[in-house]
Amino acid sequence: MKILVGIKRVVDYNVRIRVKSDGSGVDTDGVKMSINPFDEIALEEALRIREAGLAEEVIVVSLGGNECQQQLRTGLAMGADRAIQVDTSENLQPLTIARTFLKVIEKEQPGLVLLGKQAIDGDNSQTAQMLAALWDRPQATFASGLNLSGDTATVVREVDAGLETIEVDLPAVVSVDLRLNEPRFVKLPDIMKAKRKPLDVISLGDLGVTSENDLEISHYTPPPARDKGHMVEDTAQLVAELKSRGLV
């Protein structure tokens, strides 16, 4: 079985985002870029499944310009067998990304597709569900547990009410949550080895995918600031103030 893992290049989660003063976007000049943390967890899970002997090959896929090769190389250094860059200069939206993944799936025929539950830049949380819909296959979103057995996967999902377990037939799309695993650190020799692993580049156009029905993002603003608060000296003052505000 092959496992396909989606990787998105995003502003590192430790960076404090600044909206550009002209409202045209957020400032990404000179900002540290990383693999979307959820995608890293997806890749780690794929590697563990391969190491357990339940898959033969792990393929990482990213959509973007040449800069995303950096994240694909990191994925290869973590242990993916090969990488595919779908080359595009467009800022693709989830529906187009899902259509693109579907084309790659048709070619690669994976038994499992692992994606992050959301990207920490757009916070959309859509691609996995859309891909499953277009592929007409099961979706198991927000996974914090994943067990494969034959042609089925048992997935524990983190939902508002607790932990939901569902069973899906493979192939399926699973989107992963934070507590599924802790991704491994990349070692230097692996970075050297990753340079020799195959990284194929396909253009978006060659896959026959064009963006359609895009939403237009017109203006970025910083969130409204909260009024500056104040400190109290002790518990008695705190409780007195909560009472005077009618909050307790």
């Binding site: 502003v11 993002i217 017109s218 970025y220």
Partner: peptide, 10 residues
């Protein structure tokens, strides 16, 4: 971006 920017979506 985790609420660090608000965007207009059309």
């Amino acid at each position: 971006y985790a609420g660090n920017a608000i965007v207009d979506v059309h």
